[in-house]
Design a protein around this nucleic acid. Sequence first.
DNA 1: TTTT
DNA 2: TTTT
Lengths: 138, 138, 138, 138
Amino acid sequence: MNKVMLIGNVGKEPVVHYYDADQAVAQVSFATTEKGYTLANGMQVPDHTDWHNLVFFRGLAKVVEKYVHKGDRLYVEGRIRYRLYDDKQGKRHNITEIYVDNMEMLTSRSGASAPTSAPASSSTPSPAETTENKDLPF
Amino acid sequence: MNKVMLIGNVGKEPVVHYYDADQAVAQVSFATTEKGYTLANGMQVPDHTDWHNLVFFRGLAKVVEKYVHKGDRLYVEGRIRYRLYDDKQGKRHNITEIYVDNMEMLTSRSGASAPTSAPASSSTPSPAETTENKDLPF
Amino acid sequence: MNKVMLIGNVGKEPVVHYYDADQAVAQVSFATTEKGYTLANGMQVPDHTDWHNLVFFRGLAKVVEKYVHKGDRLYVEGRIRYRLYDDKQGKRHNITEIYVDNMEMLTSRSGASAPTSAPASSSTPSPAETTENKDLPF
Amino acid sequence: MNKVMLIGNVGKEPVVHYYDADQAVAQVSFATTEKGYTLANGMQVPDHTDWHNLVFFRGLAKVVEKYVHKGDRLYVEGRIRYRLYDDKQGKRHNITEIYVDNMEMLTSRSGASAPTSAPASSSTPSPAETTENKDLPF
DNA sequence: TTTT
DNA sequence: TTTT
């Protein structure tokens, strides 16, 4: 088991690459913040923010491209991956990424205009705010 | 592994029992709500609320007694337990409970007056809004 | 959030219903066991087993029908649902179910003969032991 | 929320530092392995192992020092932390660590002799294989 | 009713 | 019985 669950906010506009029509990859810089607290001795521990490198593949990458924007609050589930890469100068770098398997948008955008091409009809079914498995409404 | 994670709201004031000075047990009726959504065919699936029976023991029960109130939003982690009990009429019942191992209060109560008896001193360290393991602030 | 994660064993053969060609539902009786331990005072707390009612829908129900059997070890993720139903005698009952959104088979069945009709060819791609989201092997 | 759950194996003997009698920190190199699988097109995706830097504080660090060894299988829960540090040559490095809040030992060591110095008494209550919250055995 |  |  290698499982990560995060609730946080998107730091800037997602970056999406298409390797072919089907193979989309989206990268999202994502902040989680741990609230500060006061120690028994009165010392104040400040808030702490971590910046995660989220990576979305295939269908999720397309959902990100369509609906996710800077500032949005998300719940994501995935796995930690550690990777080496060489930059243009041939320097080797470590990078830690979260491969996202599941996402839920927590920013409600009820009367939201769609990002790129606005839907003409107002009867359009609401934008998919959830990409989790949805099952029979028993 | 038998793990439950919930974010939701307290439905009524917690009920706390002391078996002796140390053995406190708190019971909390707790609602989680799954947002409705629109199916591909246009059908609307409404919001769905589940009511959980949370059970807190020992130190956590005391934190609940002190700080948790009707309407509060909580994050809880625990385990599912199924139990049989006989009511006063001798009738047997099934009950499902969530034994809580970890709790975090999500309702900020910054300028909160303490629940029953307000603390005299204003220099009191802030009420514990978190009961998770807190470690060295590296 | 209403999230459940279980690792345990299937107690008897799954029961599968088809409402139509697509709408399959599988029910699985599922045991999780919490290891006993010794208290500080030397008292022994025995092992404790909980029996969960798992419910699988659609594609997952079909995977269950094909591959899951009595005794198998599974990892499942899902949500808790509380439901009322009336039995044939018109008596009302509470039932707690785990709606499964994600499953992973932990019982390796490497040289396994397929459950009902064994595949003739040995070059058959291995049976799906995982039904989680699988992404690009970056 | 910044939550990590891992099941895997300890790669080498833990390294423990004491800053003072109470402030212990343990570091553990920890491997999680994702099973390979066969793609629809017959291509084989091999097993994939990730090496995590686990960090344990205070009481957990002492449990690690006493009971955790190379090869042991563990379940850990914690948070991801990204940190910069300068090495002895003054070079800046990124490091990703998992701050562990909760641990469970999955390697059973029933008749285990204690690691370094064996306890004198054989009536010693069994070694703590679990450091999770344990509650009233209702 | 299961399993380690 | 709660809340967003």
